[in-house]
Simulated scan of single mutants.
Amino acid sequence: MALRGPRVWLWRWRRNPLKRRADAVESWVLLGAWAVTVLVGVAVGLATAGSVEHGMARERAEWRPVQARLTDGTPGAPNGQKMWAKVRWTAPDGSQHTGQARVSPGSEAGTAVTVWTDPAGRLVTEPATATQARLRAALAGGLVGAGAAMVPFTTGRMLRGRLERRRIDQWDTEWARFGPLWGRTTG
């Protein structure tokens, strides 16, 4: 276990005669990378969440339930799971449409079922409730925000690694110059 002294806040920005310019640059790169990472993650996450929630609110406002009728009967299923069947409905403009919908097994032809349609009369799924929309928007915003935050985070890590390699090269150069003056080198 390594012995460490007391933790000093903001140690990267304090004056120190042994601190090199590369150390100061690295500290600012780190601070900048973290700040940009947080800002990008939050901004992109909030924008995504707002967009997703707005889209789902628009769906709730535009999509309507419509009464449809089964065109063919469905066989009874022993497990009682809903099955796909052909249905027919009339769109708000009066045109007739047909499509597939999930219905209870054992339903007879002509049975009324509720389907959801968009303004053009096409079949759609039932829109998400406001609570479901908030949850989906939060999940999407969190995932997209975290993904977007990885760009500045990774860029900062790569830049820091490059600064570290440059610092090691400088140490090697200085060691090669001053090491022999000490009379004995290791290695």
Score class of each variant (00 low, 15 high):
77 A>I: 00
96 Q>F: 11
10 L>Y: 08
88 R>W: 01
18 L>K: 12
83 M>G: 11
173 T>V: 13
177 R>I: 09
169 D>L: 10
94 G>H: 10
9 W>T: 08
59 E>M: 08
172 D>H: 14
125 T>P: 04
152 P>D: 04
24 A>T: 15
182 W>R: 14
33 A>I: 04
129 T>Q: 04
105 P>E: 02
73 G>E: 06
39 L>H: 03
12 R>A: 15
92 P>L: 12
91 A>N: 14
44 V>K: 03
155 T>N: 00
28 W>R: 11
19 K>L: 10
89 W>I: 04
100 Q>H: 11
55 G>M: 03
38 V>Y: 10
167 R>M: 05
107 S>A: 13
87 V>T: 04
22 A>S: 15
27 S>M: 07
92 P>G: 08
9 W>P: 13
3 L>P: 04
21 R>C: 08
39 L>M: 12
158 M>N: 09
10 L>I: 06
44 V>W: 01
31 L>K: 01
41 G>L: 09
25 V>M: 10
175 W>D: 02
184 R>C: 03
39 L>A: 15
141 G>D: 02
37 T>R: 04
186 T>Q: 14
38 V>F: 15
187 G>E: 07
25 V>D: 00
10 L>F: 14
86 K>D: 08
136 R>I: 02
32 G>P: 03
119 P>E: 02
93 D>G: 10
169 D>R: 15
73 G>V: 07
32 G>W: 06
97 H>E: 11
134 R>V: 05
29 V>C: 10
113 V>I: 10
42 V>M: 11
120 A>F: 01
50 G>S: 10
9 W>F: 11
100 Q>R: 15
98 T>H: 13
102 R>T: 08
117 T>F: 04
21 R>D: 06
169 D>Y: 02
174 E>H: 09
147 G>L: 07
160 R>D: 08
91 A>K: 14
64 R>E: 08
60 R>E: 02
